[in-house]
Design a protein around this nucleic acid. Structure first.
Length: 436
RNA sequence: CGGGGCGUGGCGCAGCCUGGUUAGCGCGCGUGUUUUGGGUACACGAGGCCGCCGGUUCGAAUCCGGCCGCCCCGACCA
């Protein structure tokens, strides 16, 4: 993408409404613009980051055996009356009436709809297990939206649903999702900690929330260093047989991890002090096992092996995809701007042409850009070098390829790694190979 | 929902208390010159129904009332 022709409106000053660092940087780097309280438009660079996160979430869901589908944003109130949540959910649910006076709602989650789809077509225990997911916009009419996309009213969420014949099967599905979550967050460059959690309005008996570490997180968290040491993407964890999943789950739940509300100093003291870790955390995912809560309430049953009807055991698994864009920035930034992990960055590298109009600089910049126009942002603006450096740091590209008159004459460019600030002078021909 | 605050060119703000001539400053934007490896300097210029509606007044950005929007703290959440 050529910056001179792109809609990436960066800001030198911070808009007054933005309080936390990710919100400020998202506005300043031209990733999003607010259209109403808690509702945002995603601009080209922001959308690219959002799509990258979405892609990783999708790959890990597929790997976990979940099938992607896409359910609507608007749902009929009737379904929610069946489960009893239409009344329960309260003002947080955005209710809509269509022209025929039918009551509808903008979905805050999809348990009812999944159960309805399942009961229409799943009739036998032979049809189970099933695991579905979709990545769809949700709406929760928060009393007080804040923190930019981290706590918006409209947000993009991955929600998955497991349907198993019995408790044993449901627990395997639950563990499978837990592993997918750890892999997903690791690939996003985040340190994630699973913590036992309350089940809230979704209900159920087994639940974990996933907290990622960020210096500006909302809550204090305490955990065992073990969580930092496991490579969740390793082959050892790729088999996913029930036995392997059990071992994994036991590892996850055997180590201490708690938010400050549930922190137990006595247990904490029992951990070797060198292994104690604490920090600030942001919740980015939540998984629930809720058994037959919806299948029973909504009359979803399948024929069991003995011919008798059985209510399947279900679970649901959410990841706040749009929230993660903010969360990644909270976890990775400095005074100058965003520091994107390679896997999330809207652009892998920016080419900074320090002297546009100079035939040598232009030719060299164009030559590099032509090699990978899809993954690079070419700063071809008629602007001062300082402005380009500042914008590139703000936008957080993992790499900057600096093309200046001095180096270009010798066919050399400077590579800057955003995360470390490290610079190296390399032959132009080697530049792309060096940055992967 | 309880408590607090704010709406003035694209962004950040001043002016409002103590109504009165062309509504101001910085940044950004445009043109020209200048500068050329970390937001250059100078000059000229464009851009505003002062959130909306109503009231008071000879006169309202300024005073009064209502409405709308946005932000912060708290309770609540992916």
């Amino acid at each position: 993408m050529r910056l001179s022709q792109s809609f990436i409106p960066t800001l030198k000053e911070t808009p007054a409404e933005a309080q936390i660092v990710s919100h400020r940087l998202m506005l300043r780097a031209g990733l999003v613009r607010q259209t109403s309280s808690g509702i945002y438009a995603w601009l080209p660079a922001g959308l690219r980051a959002l799509r990258n996160i979405e892609r990783i979430v999708r790959e890990e869901q597929n790997r976990a055996g979940a099938q992607e589908l896409l359910m609507p944003t608007i749902q009929p109130a009737e379904l929610w009356r069946e489960s009893g949540r239409y009344e329960e959910y309260g003002r947080e649910m955005l209710r809509i009436t269509d022209r025929h006076e039918r009551e509808m709602l903008y979905g805050p989650t999809n348990e009812e709809m999944v159960t309805d789809l399942a009961r229409q077509s799943l009739r036998s225990y032979r049809d189970l297990p099933q695991m579905f997911y979709h990545i769809q916009w949700k709406f929760r009419d928060e009393v007080r939206p804040r923190f930019g996309v981290m706590r918006g009213r409209e947000f993009l969420m991955k929600d998955a649903y497991s349907i198993d014949l019995d408790h044993a099967g449901a627990v395997v599905s639950y563990r499978r999702q837990m592993l997918a979550y750890m892999r997903t967050f690791q690939r996003l460059g985040l340190k994630a900690i699973p913590m036992a959690a309350d089940t809230g309005p979704i209900g159920g008996e087994l639940s974990h929330e996933f907290i990622i570490l960020a210096p500006t997180g909302e809550s204090q968290v305490y955990f065992d260093a073990a969580f930092e040491e496991i490579d969740y993407t390793s082959d050892a964890l790729s088999g996913q047989s029930p036995e392997e999943l059990l071992r994994f789950f036991e590892t996850m739940t055997s180590h201490y991890a708690a938010t400050d509300e549930k922190h137990d100093p006595a247990s904490w003291e029992r951990i070797a002090s060198a292994r104690r870790r604490e920090g600030r955390g942001i919740e980015v995912g939540h998984i629930f096992y809720f058994g037959t809560k919806y299948s029973a309430a909504m009359g979803f049953s399948v024929a069991g092996p003995d011919g008798r009807p059985v209510h399947p055991e279900m679970g649901s698994y959410g990841i706040g995809v749009s929230r993660l864009v903010g969360a990644v920035i909270e976890a990775s930034h400095d005074e100058a701007g965003i520091i994107w992990p390679d896997s999330v960055a809207p652009f892998h590298a920016a080419i900074l042409n320090l002297k546009p109009g100079d035939p040598v600089c232009d030719a060299l910049s164009e030559r590099i850009y032509a090699q990978a126009p899809g993954s690079m942002l070419y700063d071809d603006r008629q602007d001062r070098a300082g402005a380009k450096f500042a914008d590139a740091d703000l936008m957080g590209h993992p790499w900057q390829i600096v093309v200046g008159p001095r180096g270009a004459a010798a066919d050399r460019v400077e590579l800057k790694r955003r995360a470390t600030g490290e610079r190296q002078d390399v032959a132009a021909a080697d530049a792309l190979a060096r940055i992967g």
